[in-house]
């Protein structure tokens, strides 16, 4: 794994395990947006819920999509799961979110330092940049590394009642996602809208 993970003194965790821990905590129909590739594969594998949205492209847009949901439904907590490589494509979104301050938005970055799904090439940020420092510098003061699994769960609990948007970064291993999302975009979108109470099934 990457040397930067050691210097940060955080445990190297696993995406599927972390995602499953998150899902187990959701009791109020919270929305969850899974980013391109492994993040939504593991969200799918953790057990489909009507409030899950799976991205099949548009790399880097998990946080912006979640921001839109959060602005539309301020009473609902909205989570977004994004890979570090994907986030690098859309760092400006962090400032947009910081400016709008939706307190119901919780961003989770799965940082393996690589583009795992395309062949595990290191990202340009690997070993030189720090996601939490970038987020804090973008105006998201409520940003933190999860030290280990228990700390991740504690940070999620805090974020559930936070008064500003939260970002939780997790050092993860180089494993691929454990499931494969059924790639049916219209059904994914329609069922998500049912899950959010926006529409009734036909």
């Amino acid at each position: 794994m990457n040397t930067d993970l050691d210097t940060r003194n955080t445990k190297v965790m696993n995406r599927f395990d972390i995602t499953s821990r998150l899902i187990a905590k959701l009791k109020h129909e919270e929305a969850v947006i899974g980013g391109i590739g492994n993040t939504n594969f593991d969200l799918w594998a953790a057990g489909h819920r009507p409030q899950n949205f799976y991205m099949l492209g548009s790399m880097g847009l998990a946080f912006p999509i979640a921001l839109g949901v959060a602005l539309a439904q301020p009473e609902r907590r909205v989570f977004a799961l994004e890979g570090d490589g994907s986030l690098l494509m859309q760092l400006g979104a962090l400032s947009t979110i910081a400016a709008l301050k939706p307190k119901n938005l919780i961003m989770i970055v799965m940082d393996n330092g690589i583009y795992q799904i395309t062949g595990a090439q290191p990202t340009p940020a690997a070993g030189v940049a720090d996601v939490v420092a970038i987020a804090a510098g973008s105006g998201l003061a409520n940003s933190a590394w999860a030290a280990d699994e228990e700390d991740f769960e504690r940070l999620v609990d805090e974020a559930m009642s936070a008064s500003e948007p939260s970002l939780i970064a997790v050092s993860i291993d180089d494993k691929p996602g454990v499931g494969t999302t059924r790639r049916d975009p219209v059904q994914i979108r329609e069922r998500f809208m049912h899950g959010l109470g926006v529409r009734e099934p036909l």
């Binding site: 929305a31 999509i65 998500f192 809208m193 959010l196 926006v198």
Partner: peptide
């Protein structure tokens, strides 16, 4: 991305 998410959320 933002307006797409918002539309799915009913706005």
């Amino acid at each position: 991305g933002i307006v797409s998410g918002a539309w799915m959320g009913g706005r």
